[in-house]
Amino acid sequence: MAKPSIGVYGLTGCAGCQLNIINCEDELLDIAAAVDIKSFIMAQTGNVECEIDIAFVEGAVSNEKQKKQLLDIRERAGLLVAIGTCASWGGVEAMINDVPREVAKKDVYGDTMKDNPFYDCFNPMPLKDVVKVDFQIVGCPIERPQFIQAVASLLNGNLPLLPTYALCTECKFKENECLLIEQDKFCLGPVTKAGCGARCPSNNIPCEGCRGPVFEANYASEVEIMLEKGYTKEYIAQQMSTFAGTISAEDLGARKLVKTDIP
């Protein structure tokens, strides 16, 4: 039986997630033995864009060219896995999605963008807004063991079991002092998906939410808690949109849960 084929692609992002795959140095040979890597521009030459079993896509969609590329990948791939918070939630490039794109572009590039097609971009959006996404491996960047575990599970016909609960749970596993409660720090742990081993709070740094929202993120309650602690509405919205800017301000303040239907 032929080995399952995969492709690794990058849209708008820092390429850190793809780099983290290449950084799986101890497992790279095992990965190469288990799958046939058809396309991975960052890692190899001689790439072939053909039908593949699994596509791993990093980055947000921010222009028409990428949208077309993603639709093409989706058509060729059996399973499409979003890797990283950009691909899953828009990531840092979506943090100013509430500012009209034309204004943002003008602010950053001034007149230099005139007649340059490179600047033809729209508000960055997660893959799920364009195509059906079968699974997300979140993180900024993704955690190497989770990528390997996901590949191994998918090879055996299972959706990977990665943590679905909030970071607080993992932070408790680490027996950390609660930075939100005991130190009144602005911590997004209660609404952020676990899986990083509570890396920041374990080093006395509050969670910035880089893994994106937990399945049913109660932003409304988090906002209330932070307002009570004296943080301003503007500050709260700014912090919350750093990694999950595609969740609208309306959702952030409303008395409702922000749900995602992707495992």
Binding site: A166, C168, T169, K172, C178, V214, E216, S221, R255
Partner: peptide
């Protein structure tokens, strides 16, 4: 329930 963040802290501790 509306206030609960389902963060799991109460159970873990």
């Amino acid at each position: 329930g509306e206030r609960c963040l389902a963060c799991g802290s109460c159970s873990m501790v």
